[in-house]
């Protein structure tokens, strides 16, 4: 689980780190500076909204306060490096691109052509994330998933989804 198992799952921990190398805590610096940068952006945008007073808070009041707080917290993370022992694990680009790519295919296709074409195109992209997935495997899988989606959403629940658009 991403949420609560971070200390348990072990992935991306010190494994893969050459023995004897001092942990740099680079992950924390990246995290902290990114959080701080988001804080700066939030504050910069929010000061353009009416601030109001403490008695009558305008739409900008809380965002400005929280944006500033985010900058502070981000800098604290970068400086104190709470997870200094952790390193960013080596990444393989293919699974990341394929999973996100399959969603992008859905976004691009679904409005124009409907759900079934979107699924038929998105599943092969998703399958490509792993080695050894044949085209036949992905087409059969895509067809099975499309049938399941149609059965659950359209026939069982009666949601009017556009399965195919011309």
């Amino acid at each position: 689980m991403v949420t609560e198992g971070t200390a348990l799952d072990g992935q991306g921990r010190e494994d893969g780190q050459p023995a004897g190398k001092v942990p740099t805590g680079r992950a924390d610096v990246v995290a902290g500076l990114t959080v701080a940068a988001v804080g700066v952006a939030v504050t910069a945008i929010a000061v353009q909204y009416p601030l109001g007073t403490l008695r009558r808070m305008g739409p900008g009041y809380l965002p400005v306060v929280l944006g500033a707080l985010l900058v502070l917290l981000g800098l604290l993370i970068a400086l104190s490096r709470p997870d200094a022992g952790m390193r960013i694990a080596r990444q393989r680009a293919r699974p990341i691109l394929c999973v996100l790519g399959s969603l992008a295919v859905v976004v691009a296709v679904v409005d124009a052509a409907g759900l079934v074409p979107a699924i038929m195109l998105a599943v092969p992209v998703a399958v490509a994330a792993e080695d050894g997935g044949s085209l036949l495997h992905s087409v059969v899988l895509a067809a099975a998933i499309a049938a399941l989606v149609a059965a659950i959403f359209v026939w069982a629940l009666g949601v009017p989804l556009p399965l195919v658009r011309f």
């Binding site: 859905v106 759900l115 699924i119 998703a126 992905s138 895509a142 959403f153």
Partner: peptide
């Protein structure tokens, strides 16, 4: 499993 979960996520949100 994972392609099916991905499709269910996108169809679910789209619906």
């Amino acid at each position: 499993l994972y392609p099916a979960v991905l499709v269910f996520i996108s169809v679910g949100v789209y619906s």
